[in-house]
Design a protein around this nucleic acid. Structure first.
Length: 702
DNA sequence: GCCTAAGTGCTTTTT
DNA sequence: GCACTTAGGC
């Protein structure tokens, strides 16, 4: 339903209105969590179109994630109707892709270029290292990959990089970087970073092209500006350089992607970059209770680097934050499950989220929900598109579309088995490098391989088939289907099922976008990390996800699990100050997702990656004002910690270590949490500490 | 070239 | 704990 602009303004507060009505020129909206940022953006775009008669085609709105882009598109269309489809609303990467697609020749590419994902990019780097006979155990391919990616995002070309070489590893990185870029070009393919870098290169080399885009995109909106990296920053600046109608929205307290090159100083420096910039602070929070907001504020105030702003709310005080210390990750999960079962009576499961720092933590939680039949969905983790069978199929599709794609070719030239071994592949690859072409070009010009005819046949057939039909054809012609069907294992069956699922995705894609070409589909898939499987059923479900992926969302009830030192804050970030501040911002993001109540949970002992560790409670818990938290009190505790005098306890050599399981005939299973010279502290799940001292001899190691 | 077994390394966050 | 790599036998 369309709402009049004036009516829309009625819903906004003074600051929000000011932001919407602010005329042309650079504008920075510092929007705290839950301050109605999206509403303002939506209203501002609607106002431009409806009241100021701006052509929707002259507006570009750039978001950080696909999810955000989709949501913004929907909300704007709700406001302005179908003309909203003319607005370019996309992520930075798909915006970059659009520009590249419109100018591929100028960049030395052919129309049918393909995009490699970060797994493929790592594979390519490993291959280059191997070709160079470099020991991958000495020079970590992942490290080299991240170095190359950072270089690209900072607009450091291989040439520039060569001047920065100052040691062994940077020398190797330079050489790999150079070969990597050469290979991508020969393969007529791009990586994720290129989607940002190439448009900038294009604009530098062809100022005329940039001017055209400046005329098209007279109004530029950038969401989550604190997460922009150097390349994204430059791109935004270039596009808006002529008219300077750049409106950026962000919150420096929610900058959580510095590891990916994001520089939150971009937002801090906006006023320096644009002299006549107007700054508007949105500090009223409509989402959280006072308690939740106070907690978030009390955590974030420990950060040194930040803009001076403080969120406030008129909302009620609300419930205290509940802190629970569980025995281990299973106990942690079972607390969550129990509490969710209780909450289910009063609220929809859609209103509940379980957040964790790392994907690996999801497993225990997932098992908990599985065992108790609580519907849940995991967002993020194990992307559908990164499954082996899907990647294999995609490699065929990519190769059919772009035969120069060596990465895809190597993946499938011998899958299913065709008696083509490492030797043949190496020779092909070497010939390709020598001739400056691709491996398939080498095959085409002489090599008698059945594989050549297979791909050419598939290519020919695909020209007359729909997308979904093409997939069926590929599965049959390649022998993948036969291979999997003959296996008769559970694993193979699941793979077949996933391939069928893939077909239903392409079917939906075809229906949604009319006639879908292979090109459109491959582009779409490359830029989307995961499928939204929500269409399968609309049953309410608990949402499980990482804190990174929850940004921008809100839930009534939020469980944050793994609130332990070395988990959150993560062990890799506690060393440096910047890293820790980012973890703290991450915590701020997590806390401000909750509308009604937060649960903070940790475990005394945790098994992660096959190793058991005992962690202290997260420092972030202690940073929250005490009166906002309902601590472990006897009535609701999950775990009791008990200190026992060693001399009274051992009459034999029990050799207890921290993390050991012990059992007490009366108090049941427990865990050793601390040992010093005279005292052993043990945590029991049961209650009633008082009498324990007298019965301590019945503690046994198990 | 293929297969298996054993060994190794690696585990933050994502477009 | 698991995925990926490697060595060695066929």
């Amino acid at each position: 339903m369309e709402v009049g602009v004036n009516m829309m303004l009625d819903y906004l507060n003074d600051k929000q209105k000011e932001a919407v009505l602010q005329k042309d020129g650079p504008l920075l909206i510092l929007a705290g969590a839950g301050s109605g940022k999206t509403s303002v953006l939506t209203a501002k775009v609607a106002y431009l179109i409806k009241e100021r008669g701006i052509n929707p085609k002259n507006i570009v709105a750039i978001t950080f994630t696909n999810k955000a882009a989709k949501e913004m598109k929907q909300r704007i269309i709700n406001e302005v109707g179908s003309i909203g489809y003319d607005i370019q609303i996309s992520t930075f990467h798909s915006f970059g892709l659009r520009i590249i697609k419109e100018n591929y020749e100028k960049l030395g590419y052919q129309k049918n270029f393909t995009i490699i994902d970060s797994d493929d990019s790592l594979t390519l780097i490993k291959k280059i290292l191997k070709d160079m006979s470099i020991d991958a155990t000495r020079y970590n391919p992942k490290f080299i990959k991240s170095q190359i990616s950072s270089a690209k995002n900072e607009m450091v070309t291989p040439e520039k990089y060569s001047k920065l070489v100052n040691d062994d590893i940077s020398d190797i990185t330079y050489k790999v970087y150079k070969k990597y870029q050469d290979t991508l070009l020969r393969n007529n393919s791009l990586d994720f970073d290129d989607l940002l870098v190439m448009p900038i290169e294009l604009f530098v080399k062809h100022p005329g092209v940039l001017q055209q885009y400046q005329e098209i995109f007279k109004y530029v909106f950038i969401d989550e500006y604190q997460d922009t990296n150097e390349a994204q920053y430059i791109l935004s600046k270039m596009i808006s350089a002529k008219y300077k109608n750049i409106c950026v929205v962000g919150d420096d307290s929610q900058s959580i992607y510095s590891w990916r090159g994001a520089n939150f100083k971009n937002i801090l420096n906006f006023e320096k970059d644009y002299k006549d910039a107007k700054v508007i602070l949105l500090e009223q929070n409509y989402r959280c209770t006072k308690t939740i907001l106070d907690a978030a504020n009390s955590v974030i105030k420990n950060n040194v680097q930040k803009k001076d702003k403080k969120l406030w709310t008129n909302n009620e005080k609300g419930e205290k934050i509940k802190y629970v210390r569980a025995l281990d990750e299973k106990d942690e999960a079972s607390f969550v499950v129990k509490e969710v079962q209780r909450l289910k009576e009063e609220t929809s499961l859609d209103e509940i989220a379980v957040l964790y720092r790392t994907n690996a933590q999801s497993r225990a939680i997932e098992e908990g929900f599985l065992n108790s039949n609580i519907p849940y969905k995991i967002v993020g983790a194990y992307a559908f598109y990164s499954r082996k069978e899907i990647k294999d199929l995609l490699a065929y599709l990519k190769l059919i579309y772009n035969q120069k794609d060596d990465v895809s070719l190597i993946r499938i030239i011998n899958y299913p088995k065709r008696k083509i071994g490492a030797k043949t592949i190496d020779n092909l690859s070497m010939d390709a490098v020598l001739n400056g072409t691709s491996m398939f070009d080498v095959i085409k010009s002489g090599k008698e391989l059945e594989f050549k005819n297979l791909i050419l046949k598939m290519k020919e057939k695909s020209d007359t088939l729909s997308l979904t039909e093409t997939i069926d054809m590929v599965l049959d012609e390649s022998g993948i289907r036969k291979e999997l069907e003959s296996e008769h294992t559970l694993e193979a069956d699941i793979r077949l099922e996933n391939l069928n699922e893939f077909k239903s995705i392409t079917k939906t894609f075809e229906e949604e976008s009319g006639i879908a070409s292979l090109e459109d589909f491959l582009n779409e898939v490359s830029l989307v990390s995961d499928v939204n499987d929500e269409k399968n059923d609309d049953l309410p479900k608990v949402t499980l996800m990482t804190i990174h992926s929850v940004k921008g969302l809100e839930f009534k009830y939020v469980f944050i699990v793994g609130m332990e030192e070395n988990i959150f804050p993560h062990i890799n970030s506690v060393e440096e100050k910047d890293g820790l501040e980012e973890e703290r911002r991450l915590c701020y993001v997590a806390l401000t997702r909750a509308k009604k109540k937060i649960y903070l949970i940790n475990a005394l002992r945790r098994t992660l990656f096959g190793r058991t560790s005992v962690n202290m409670p997260s420092r972030f818990i202690t940073e929250i004002d005490k009166e906002l938290i309902e601590m472990n009190e006897k009535k609701n505790i999950s775990v009791n910690e008990i200190k026992i005098d060693k001399s009274k306890m051992f009459n034999d050599d029990n050799n207890l270590k921290v993390g050991d399981n012990v059992i007490h005939d009366k108090y049941g299973p427990g865990v050793v949490v601390m040992i010093d010279e005279s005292i052993v502290a043990i945590a029991f799940k049961s209650q009633g500490i008082k009498k324990l001292m007298k019965n301590h001899k019945s503690i046994k190691k198990v």
